[in-house]
Amino acid sequence: MKLALIIDDLGYNGPIGRAIAKLPGQLTLAILPGGNYSRQVVNLGVREGKEIMLHQPMEPQGYPRVNPGPGALLKGMPDKRIRRILAHNLDEFPEAIGVNNHMGSRLTTDRSAMNAVMGVILQRGLYFVDSRTSGKTVAFSAAANQGVPRAQRAVFIDNTRSKSAILNQLRQLERVGRSHGEAVGIGHPYPETLAALRSWLPMLARKNIQLVSASQLLTPHASRAKFADKRRRIAAKR
């Protein structure tokens, strides 16, 4: 049984970001644009053999009171501007081989905006993971319609910030994985998440669980080998 675990929101807390990058196993690191520590975490993550994604800020419900941060894509932006901002953020992290959404509970329900996003991702040969921050998201289907390799989040592991609650959510991720053969979880750079992962990761082998990078759980299945090769080429440059 295979699980992928993406750690979002990296780049704004240096010590936690570095600690997560150094954890054992194939965690996937989703990096925010514009963070003071984003480049540092990317460099360390690549050296540690981790897969890198762009964690693309997108407009949430409650904007502007709820602010997705620098480099965000907003509802009502012309498609040309969406493509330009996303391309600029991707240029910041050439090591990234995938994208997932930061926030985005409003923007990911906008078919036109998601089509513009997927056009850039397809052109660059990347993949997309829908974080599913809205039950009305069309991001996964927009990716499918444009032939973008894709996956979607099954479990958020740390909506409740306590080690015991996070371990319970990791067990829920395991249950989903056993039911479907594989599953994608998402966590965040919290001290409680770091503590839970330090307890959980060493137990995976005896549970017969393989932790893989997000690119290894993509649809279509045939795209997985392509991204494994991309990761090897990036690592070889270091």
Rank of each mutant, 00 (worst) to 15 (best):
I166D: 07
D130H: 01
P68K: 11
A235Q: 15
I31V: 12
S112A: 15
P60N: 04
K2D: 14
N100K: 02
N100R: 01
L54A: 03
E95P: 02
V212K: 06
A72K: 04
M77A: 07
V99E: 02
R206V: 12
A21I: 10
K226E: 15
K237W: 09
N145A: 15
Q152L: 09
L5N: 04
T219V: 14
R39W: 11
E192T: 07
V155L: 03
I31Q: 09
I85G: 05
L3W: 06
V212T: 08
T193W: 03
M53I: 06
S134L: 08
P68A: 14
L126C: 04
N89H: 06
A144H: 10
E51W: 05
R233P: 04
F93D: 12
S112Y: 09
E51G: 02
K2C: 10
E192A: 03
H102S: 10
P220A: 12
I7A: 05
H188I: 04
S38N: 12
A4P: 01
G181F: 03
L170N: 01
G185P: 00
G17E: 05
V155E: 03
H88W: 13
A87D: 15
K22T: 13
P202W: 01
P78R: 00
V155T: 12
A116P: 04
L73T: 00
S141W: 11
D8L: 05
A96H: 00
Q169R: 08
L32T: 06
A96V: 06
R124P: 07
S162T: 13
A228N: 13
I97E: 11
P189Y: 06
I121E: 04
K163D: 11
P70A: 12
M118E: 07
G181C: 04
D91H: 10
E92R: 11
L170R: 04
R84D: 14
E51P: 00
L29I: 05
R106K: 12
V176A: 06
R161Q: 15
R233K: 11
M103D: 10
R161T: 11
R150G: 06
G147R: 02
E59S: 05
M77C: 07
G98C: 08
F140C: 07
L173P: 03
R161W: 10
A21C: 09
K22C: 13
S215F: 10
L204W: 02
I166H: 03
L218I: 05
M114V: 11
M114D: 05
V46W: 11
H88C: 10
R175F: 10
R232T: 12
R175W: 13
I52Q: 08
D110I: 01
F227K: 07
F93T: 08
V41H: 03
V41A: 04
L74S: 00
H180E: 13
M53A: 02
